[in-house]
Design a protein around this nucleic acid. Structure first.
Lengths: 161, 161
DNA sequence: AATGAAATGAGAGCGCG
DNA sequence: CGCGCTCTCATTTCATT
């Protein structure tokens, strides 16, 4: 599946709309219009344009992991042995395919991957480490950071203005 | 403002609804109903109930950071000097208040905080480190991991079933 | 107590000036 | 871009199990 994504120019109206949608996308276009001094149809056209360009990637509900029994959030730094392109790609695909891996970044620095993992119990995490890290010949080592407090969570992008 | 959050029991219908909403919350209730074998009003009531209980925390648009000029995602591990309750609370509040800090977790392990930072340029990041880390007496040291690839991004919680 | 069917109302979508 | 229409969808009511 191809992600539609091409560059478009965003003016201050677009940014103002994004600022609202990224906080609450159920805000009526009418209300958005009042907030940014635009008519509702104008707001709608701009939203559609940003969706088509891939600026707006999705509309989703944010769920409290604790209330659905996935109480534990864990950070993992992963260091690999070989960094050849195909081995890195394989690792990316494997990490990304695991539902418990909520986020995965390929990074520079003292580690190669940083993962955010969400699991119901520590033993579930232990099982995951066996499968994902100990079961992978190319993983040199990994470091675990268990979250005691999710101080700030979100995907909100800092927008100029 | 207080976030309403109290425990409720979720059945398999609720989980099925959540699975859909966390992927696309613009899905019509009619369509959700067909997918889970429930009428639209029943779906509506269950969604409202989960919103009121705090299971559903928000409805948001996901924005591509690159297309809005915030091209750089960075992981930061922060280690503090003193871990007294009030100093930790102060750090939590300071980190959480910064727009560029997209996510902040208080963790166990070799670091005390893990941050996900989104900035337009490396010099913006450098300025942020001066303000947030070098300008804070209680920060012992911090380690930076610059994301070369956002392999998997989201807040989707793994749901049983 | 929770559901589904039907009626109401709000909001999204579209063509027009 | 804004105005006004149409139509879909969300929301309420009510009878039913």
């Amino acid at each position: 599946m191809s992600k539609a994504s091409f560059a478009i120019t965003l003016d201050s109206f677009d940014l103002a709309i994004l600022r609202i949608l990224q906080r609450d996308n159920s805000t009526p276009q009418r209300v958005i219009g009042e907030a940014v001094n635009l008519s509702a149809p104008a707001v709608q056209r701009r939203i559609r344009r940003m969706e088509e360009a891939g600026v707006i990637q999705a509309h989703v509900a944010i769920i409290d992991p604790i209330q659905v029994g996935q109480a534990i959030t864990i950070f993992v730094e992963v260091e690999v042995i070989s960094e050849t392109a195909d081995l890195i790609d394989a690792a990316k695909r494997e990490f990304a395919s695991v539902p418990e891996v909520q986020q995965c970044y390929y990074v520079t620095g003292e580690a190669d991957f940083v993962l955010v993992v969400v699991v119901p119990t520590m033993s579930a995490y232990e099982a995951l480490t066996r499968r994902l890290f100990f079961g992978n010949n190319n993983v040199k080592r990994f470091r675990t950071f268990v979250a005691m407090d999710r101080v700030k969570v979100g995907l909100a992008v800092p927008l100029p203005g």
